[in-house]
């Protein structure tokens, strides 16, 4: 088991947002977390990677207790979080954004090779290498954000709504890329508002409502459901 969260409570600014959430992600597994906006999905992700403090409960990564470790430490351990927005540095060039992701954790060796790998997955980033990140289109910015994450060769990728603001075509492309990253052996915990896409990609799905995980089900069972409205 790569990641295990048990009975996690999270609150900030005096309000509790997550109530006793439990979930797990196995090595190389693709897991999705869906639910209405404000259900606490993003909060849960930010807590796992160490940005928010846990209330009570357990967070284990590769068997190790990672509660209250900083995101910086977790990134070095291969646990990488990608924001839904503001996920890059607007006044740095595309290349600089990528380089910085590697420099920040002192992973500068073999950078050329890993850059090549990122460019293979996202060819457009190669063409835009010298451009400032804030001149990229919405879709390209998403690609860059994911590119920065895979550049540091994570074991577990926490993605927060990567499809937000993308056109249907781009969403499809994004889905393919996520599939590819997953096939390379990286485990993914995906938070998505594009529920259909999340269900079609993930092997297991958790559903969250008002701070609680109300359902866990397999890809097959979720695909068979007639309506999703009752989950939201």
């Amino acid at each position: 088991m790569l990641l295990e969260v048990r009975n996690l409570d999270v609150g900030y600014q005096g309000k509790q947002v997550v109530f006793g959430a439990s979930l797990r992600v196995d090595a190389g597994e693709f897991v999705a977390l869906i639910g209405h906006n404000g259900a606490g999905k993003t909060t849960l992700l930010k807590t796992i990677c160490g940005y928010l403090k846990t209330g009570s409960g357990d967070v284990r990564y590769r068997g190790e207790d990672i509660r209250n470790l900083s995101p910086a430490v977790n990134v070095k351990k291969g646990l990488v979080f990608v924001h839904q927005e503001k996920s890059l540095f607007p006044n740095l060039s595309v290349l600089e954004n990528l380089q910085l992701a590697a420099y920040a954790i002192g992973k500068a060796y073999n950078l050329e090779q890993r850059l090549k790998e990122v460019y293979r997955i996202f060819p457009i980033l190669k063409d835009r290498e010298k451009q400032m990140a804030n001149t990229l289109s919405g879709g390209q910015q998403k690609q860059l954000a994911v590119g920065m994450a895979i550049l540091v060769e994570p074991q577990l990728l926490l993605l927060d709504e990567p499809s937000l603001g993308l056109s249907p075509n781009l969403v499809k492309d994004l889905g393919n890329v996520l599939k590819e990253i997953s096939n390379m052996g990286t485990a993914i915990l995906l938070v998505e508002q594009n529920v259909k896409m999340a269900i079609s990609l993930a092997q297991r799905i958790y559903v969250m409502r008002t701070g609680q995980i109300i359902l866990e089900d397999t890809h097959e069972n979720m695909m068979k459901r007639e309506s999703l409205w009752d989950l939201f």
């Binding site: 940005y51 924001h83 503001k86 540095f89 607007p90 740095l92 600089e96 420099y103 920065m148």
Partner: peptide, 22 residues
């Protein structure tokens, strides 16, 4: 590198924390 990190922190401090910049 250091200059890049300074620019990164000033433009997006939260993201900088997330990618591991102190």
């Amino acid at each position: 590198k250091a200059g890049m990190m300074i620019r990164a922190v000033s433009s997006n401090p939260e993201k900088a924390t997330f990618i591991g910049i102190d």
